[in-house]
């Protein structure tokens, strides 16, 4: 009897279509966002996250139509991230039907956007996405830094301290991506996930590196994550969300099944 740990499939969206690729290379059209979101919903996904990977700003509004279409047919929480720069971007995404908006690079370059958006729309609507990499050398105490721009730009910010600061700014949840694991399929960076999750009082979603169902289990049990996010293991049909939940339940984790 407890709150269920969540499984969240993530969809990369551009120009109104879901795309999939490996490490952002060889992007292929993977279908209609509404159909794919409904499929995950049918499989028992606890939420769905959309990452808008549109590069050009003149196509930004396309994601709003995607969210409107999905929100009218899928009745589980929807999170949208990617390219959120201003409080008004948050407002437009929420009005389109998103329940939560994820802020990544802008949280670093202009943290007041997080504070203002949380004050205006409530912390429950604001997710701060943190992309982190281990920067400590072998033999040193473990240390992780925040990176932006898809992991290319380092910020000098300590990931654990940054998560605490974002909580203080009003974030309702942290989406933590192990950047050095993203696309590797060798599992989450568990020490990082655990350090961040134990340091904050708000829920932490683990992301980056999932290659099999045991990795999801490890993220919750070893990493203390409140939710796990994965893209490729679900997109490429290796596993269904239901199979993932069954594996978690078999490991003694409370899930909604």
């Amino acid at each position: 009897m407890a709150l269920a740990k969540r499984i969240i499939p993530c969809l990369d969206v551009t120009a109104g279509r879901v795309v999939k690729g490996v490490n952002f290379l060889e992007l292929r059209d993977a279908g209609d966002p509404v159909e794919i979101a409904k499929r995950y919903d049918d499989q028992g996904a606890d939420e769905v996250t959309f990452l808008d990977i549109t590069a050009s700003s003149d196509e930004r509004d396309v994601i709003l139509h995607v969210i409107e279409a999905v929100a009218s047919q899928v009745f589980i929480p929807l999170t949208v991230g990617g390219g959120v720069r201003k409080v008004d971007d948050v407002r437009r995404l929420l009005n389109a039907g998103a329940d939560k908006v994820s802020i990544n690079t802008t949280a670093v370059t202009n943290p007041e956007v997080v504070r203002d958006a949380a004050a205006r729309f409530g912390s429950q609507a604001i997710v701060v996405a943190i992309d982190a990499k281990q920067v400590s050398l072998p033999g040193e105490p473990l240390r992780w830094e925040v990176f932006t721009h898809g992991g290319r730009k380092h910020t000098g910010l300590d990931a654990v301290e940054w998560a605490k600061k974002m909580q203080a700014y009003g974030a309702g949840e942290i989406l933590l991506t192990s950047m050095d694991r993203d696309g590797t399929k060798i599992g989450f960076n568990l020490p990082l996930t655990r350090a961040v999750s134990d340091a904050v009082d708000i829920p932490v979603i683990a992301s980056g590196g999932v290659g099999n169902l045991q990795h999801l289990v490890d993220g919750v049990i070893e990493g203390h994550a409140d939710a796990v996010l994965a893209a490729s293991i679900f997109h490429f049909g290796e596993y269904t969300v239901r199979q993932a939940k069954e594996a978690m339940r078999a490991a003694g984790i409370e899930v909604r099944l």
Partner: peptide, 9 residues
Amino acid sequence: LKVPHMGWN
């Protein structure tokens, strides 16, 4: 246990 209480209960 985290606050907000977020998820399926």
